[in-house]
């Protein structure tokens, strides 16, 4: 039962995050989405996934709060209670397929690999390659911003 409640909450908060007019309220709804996803991970026994979801979510949300306040355009009028109620209703309807339907099929369960083995023995090369890509992206952003600042002075 708790998974169904979490699924409904997840879809409703995702809908609210996208379609509320005020950016700050959208970011608050996105925080709800991250919370529900992390809770689903915890209940499925994926504790590391939940911790990463929280850590990445908190970072993203803090940046979004700041940029939403500084860069977001202020809406002409506030979202009415009627519209918010309609969005919640649409979210509840959209979550019904996930609650009542299921896809048939079977997966072969491999012997359980620990997260350490999975990261370093199975996906070690991927981790290193991704670290290089991310480092390159970060350096690229830093160089672009530095050049822009230099050009502005």
């Amino acid at each position: 039962m708790i998974f169904e409640i979490l699924a409904v909450g997840l879809i409703i908060s995702a809908i609210l995050a996208l379609f509320l007019d005020e950016v700050i309220y959208s970011v608050a709804a996105l925080a709800g989405t991250f919370f529900f996803v992390a809770f689903i991970y915890v209940l499925n026994g994926a504790l590391y996934a939940a911790i990463f979801q929280f850590a990445v979510g908190i970072g993203t949300l803090s940046i979004l709060f700041l940029s939403g306040e500084m860069l977001g355009d202020k809406p002409a009028k506030k979202t009415s209670v009627k519209r918010t109620g309609a969005l919640v209703g649409i979210g509840a309807v959209l979550s019904l397929p996930a609650v009542f339907l299921s896809v048939s099929g079977s997966t072969t369960i491999a012997p359980d690999i620990s997260i350490g083995d999975a990261l370093w023995n199975v996906r070690g090369l991927d981790v290193v390659m991704q670290a290089i890509v991310i480092l390159t992206v970060a350096l690229g952003i830093a160089i672009v911003l530095f050049e822009k600042r230099k050009g502005g002075q």
Binding site: A46, Q53, V56, S67, D112, I115, V122, R123, Q130, A138
Partner: peptide, 29 residues
Amino acid sequence: TSQGLGQAFLILAFSTDTAVSGVILALLV
């Protein structure tokens, strides 16, 4: 198919997602 493998994939996906977020926010600013 295995809990550990799924979480390892998730960590890789998060790292890519964070890099994408950085680029999008830089463009937004």
